[in-house]
Amino acid sequence: MDRTIVITGASSGVGLAAAEQLAAQGDQVVVVGRDPGRLAAAVEKVKAAGEGREPGRFQADFESLDEVRALADHLLTTYPVIDVLANNAGGIVGKYRKTKDGYEATIQGNHLAPFLLTHLLRERLSGKRVVNTASDAHSAGVPDPDRLAGDPATYRAYRTYGASKSANILFTSEAHRRWPDILSVSFHPGVVRTNFGTGRAMRLFYKYAPGLVSPEKAGALLTWLATAPADELVSGGYYVGHQVRQPRPHAADEALASRLWDASAEAVGV
């Protein structure tokens, strides 16, 4: 099947591995990344995996909502059909930073930006699917819909990252309730050996620590969620491996999910 699959955060790690796997299956992959050098290298790898088929590409930094809007405009103009949106871009910010849009950088990059992108593509995704890369790190933090700008005095990098991953799960389940015509799933990719992290110690951990999941294995899970028959998946579900798992109670709180959705919509102007 020749699907059009948009993958954000596709210039390295899980996103790149999935992009290569999907291209090898014959899908039209659109590679989205922040760094121009890594993006160019990724495009060449995806092209090789697809036996010379040129993937789509777009450079966007999710710490700018204007760049997210430009990405959405490009996708809507270029691709009459979008079968899958994989919201995979994400990161962890070592020290408190506020974006030019006025929000804490982790919650914007990991939650508000994909929330906005999905809304802007919403009509194009009707009858299709959205795959959100979450994490079991969601156990570390709870998003506060009333404080999306964060607080530099109380900022903790991993707790904030956990809150953003909880937001991914909450967004997925609320999307299932509000947009029943779109199949929405989130997943935990495992602790992946990649260039993820901030600071030398964390980068060394994600590069060399024993027992980490390979990007290829994590990418295969994203690939499966993007391509498995819809009736084999549970919309709104949080996947760990090929099974739906119950997230921590705060990430399954329907009232919190609804509040976060409304606050996020106000924040990004949709």
Rank of each mutant, 00 (worst) to 15 (best):
P249G: 10
W261Y: 07
S173L: 13
V270N: 04
T198P: 04
S235D: 11
I5P: 04
P36T: 07
G56M: 07
R259S: 13
E174M: 08
L71D: 00
A230K: 11
Q25M: 14
T77M: 12
V142H: 10
P143T: 07
A18I: 05
G90F: 08
W224K: 10
A201F: 09
K100L: 14
S64Q: 12
S139L: 09
A17E: 09
R178S: 10
L75G: 01
F58K: 02
L121F: 11
A163M: 05
L221Q: 15
S11D: 09
E54R: 14
A105E: 07
Y239H: 14
G141N: 10
Q246K: 14
P229M: 12
A228V: 03
K217A: 13
Q243D: 15
T118A: 15
L125Y: 11
L85T: 03
L65H: 04
L22S: 02
F171W: 08
G199A: 09
R3S: 13
P189I: 06
F58S: 02
D35F: 09
G109D: 00
L71V: 03
A230R: 12
L65K: 00
P180C: 10
A149W: 05
W179V: 05
G219S: 08
E51R: 15
Y96G: 01
Q59V: 10
A42E: 10
A48Y: 03
V84S: 13
G109C: 02
R69P: 00
V32L: 03
D146R: 14
N110M: 06
A265R: 14
A157C: 10
K95E: 14
D73M: 04
T198V: 15
E174V: 09
V270I: 14
S164Q: 02
S164L: 01
Y206E: 08
V268S: 04
Q25T: 04
